[in-house]
Amino acid sequence: MHEIDLPAYARALGISIHDLEDSVPVLTVDFGPNVEGRPQHYHGGATAGLLENAGYAALRVKLTEEGREARLKPVNITVQYLSAGKSQASFAKGRVTRLGRRNANVTVEAWQADRRKPIASAVMNILIA
């Protein structure tokens, strides 16, 4: 069992944990009407939702490793859309670039069949309360 609990929004959208890589979760979502924008493509908001949840998951793992219990408050997210999300599964994994006492900087990438070709990336700033 994975220790990461995804929020209701993530579960409702269809996001689940695909794998753990060095204990960092790789999240995935299958293509379907919930995430569709223009026909047969991901909506930018759904892609952002996947990125954001992967960012939080990576940060929660890091905090747990350090024995810290914390409530996370989003400060901002900047999403770069790199190429269109096609009608297939998407994946995302976050990396905590800096973890401070009061805030964390997280970068996230999302990809589909070819991990070397990300479809979107994000930087997030998260307050740790």
Binding site: D5, P7, A8, Y9, G45, A46, A48, G49, E52, I77
Partner: peptide, 24 residues
């Protein structure tokens, strides 16, 4: 909507749907 909650213990909207709303 209950399905858009972002935290397990508080009825607070997740931030993801706000990105979708603003994108549209």
């Amino acid at each position: 909507s209950e399905k858009l909650l972002g935290e397990p213990d508080r009825p607070v909207l997740a931030s993801g749907p706000i990105v979708s709303l603003m994108d549209m």
